[in-house]
Amino acid sequence: MHRYRFVLFRPLQFLPVIFGISVLTFVLVRLIPGDPARMLLGTRATASAIEKVRAQYGLDEPIWLQYFYFIKNLAQGEMGRSIVYKTDVLKLIATRIEPTLVLVLGSVLLALLIAVPMATLASRRRGTMADQGVRVVSTLGLGMPSFWIALMLMIVFSVNLDWFPVSGYGRSVSDKAVHMVLPCLTVALSLSAILTRSLRASLIAQINSDQATAARARGLPEGAVFWRHVMPNALIPTLNLLAVNIGWLIGGTVIVESVFAIPGMGQLLVRGIFSRDYMVVQAVAMTFAVATVLVNFLADILTVAADPRVKL
């Protein structure tokens, strides 16, 4: 069991990173020019009204004291109140987290559904036209901007075929599912390009590995060798790549949510930046960063669980 000891100690290493993230978010958001109180009240607000709002949100305190309050509230599980939406930030996030979570999980699932067959085809028929085809398609996939894929999918599937709605999120579960198909597909198309290339390379390495040769020597048919010995080992580096790319993925959802007008966290963050809603930006950025750290941690645990040789 000592191989899993890092599960206890690794979170201690997160602390400096999370501290750094909180400082960076705090400083960045306060460097954005413009006074939140003035943004809120408009240009014709009186000086006393602005003073009142500044005092209400603690904006008149020195910056280090504001940071101290921020950390103190954080320790008590509070993130402050949104200046624009006038509600508790955590409650606001709770209403926005679902679309983003669906988008991220849905597109990862879809991307794997595209990448695994493509990489399998390419690695088992290496050097053939099929392999070259997969290579060209995945290289093209890398170069497609997500906002452009989104518009192309809209033109084909919403405008011409009328299969899916152009944008929005919907209310009922089935309605939401229909709304999320194109956004998930948008992210999945870019993501699957990255995954296919990585998986193809590690599949080829595994097909020629000693353990695959040993399995063949024991008389296993090629199909069994591939699915039982080659694929599980090749998936580990690809899943790690997926974890490393989670930050990129979350950044991508910001664009996709904006194109499809999905009321998710990314949209909340971008609007928060432009309306100087300090508390919202801090809370969303912190949530994203902590999620990134946690996903990488999970990937580490998965790697150790999957490969007895790995020690962290």
Binding site: I21, G247, G251, V254, G266, A289, T292
Partner: peptide, 14 residues
């Protein structure tokens, strides 16, 4: 570590 923990595009936008 801190910079990598941030969504790349979000940091650029900020």
């Amino acid at each position: 570590d801190v910079v990598l923990a941030f969504p790349y595009l979000v940091l650029i936008i900020a």
